[in-house]
């Protein structure tokens, strides 16, 4: 099942729905829509459309393709789709129109806003490819490593982060889309004295980029929260030990 905003596309039953309304499409319009949904950010030229949708058939004219695009738009207009499903990119071809906020239901923070938020919270991250090799390091991520000298591009991430040892299968499940995310809280400082006393990390797969299979691992400083917890647990445990001794005597 493919989805795009409120559109769901079931390739097994060959049905398309916008919210609860079925969108009635003929086979060519259906194939066109599937192509656009599989490449939601790409501008598809007439040649690219012909190669993928008319493969093996007689070559259609540009006018024929325009007619199918019009029918596709009309079918979505009939189910009250806001705006046009496919937009014309002058001189280049066609592209799936970006989702309006009424279609997504959410307003996503732009990259700049996210970066400023990460900075304010001292959140750093690294990116692993599908072989779990480091592909990107945010500028301050080594401060969260137990051994900053071992954190390198194109190397295994577990060399600098001992907490990743044993999690290879978990990370692979996320990369394979079998699991959404994994998080670990309150990992204490090891040999790197410059590292925060405690960190949390969150591993999240990239589901939005069609061409790359990547795992983002975000780190945050959890020292304040964990130090408070330590004081609380320490007091409680000492009291419990005292009570145990009193019960024995």
């Amino acid at each position: 099942m493919l989805t795009y905003g409120k559109i769901s596309f079931d390739s097994q039953s060959c049905t398309v729905y916008h919210e609860d309304s079925q969108v009635h499409l003929n086979p060519k319009e259906y194939a066109l829509l599937e192509l656009f949904i599989r490449y939601p950010t790409h501008v598809l030229s007439y040649d690219a459309i012909i190669d993928r949708v008319w493969e093996g058939d007689s070559i259609p004219t540009r006018s024929c393709i325009r007619t199918h695009i019009k029918r596709l738009r009309r079918a979505f207009n009939a189910v009250d789709y806001p705006g046009e499903i496919v937009e014309n990119v002058h001189g280049l071809g066609y592209r799936l129109a970006p989702l309006s906020t009424s279609e997504t239901g959410v307003i996503r923070p732009p990259a700049g806003v996210l970066q400023r938020f990460f900075k304010s919270k001292a959140i750093e991250y690294l990116v692993l490819d599908d072989h779990q090799i480091v592909q990107y390091l945010s500028p301050g991520v080594t401060q969260y490593s137990d051994d900053p000298t071992e954190v390198k591009l194109n190397e295994a991430a577990s060399d600098g982060f001992p907490e990743f040892v044993g999690l290879e299968d978990t990370f692979q499940e996320i990369l394979d889309g079998e699991r959404d995310s994994f998080e670990l809280h309150g990992v204490g400082k090891g040999t790197n004295s410059a590292r925060p006393d405690y960190i949390n990390f969150y591993a999240v797969g990239d589901r939005d980029t069609q061409l790359a299979n990547r795992l983002f691992i975000f780190f945050e400083d959890a020292s304040d929260q964990m130090r408070s917890r330590q004081r609380l647990v320490q007091r409680s445990n000492e009291t419990m030990l005292l009570l145990e001794r009193l019960q024995i005597t």
């Binding site: 001992p162 204490g188 090891g190 964990m226 917890r229 445990n237 000492e238």
Partner: peptide, 12 residues
């Protein structure tokens, strides 16, 4: 001296 562990500490 008893110091309670919170979260996890990893040693190698």
């Amino acid at each position: 001296q008893y110091l309670s562990t919170v979260g996890v500490k990893i040693s190698k």
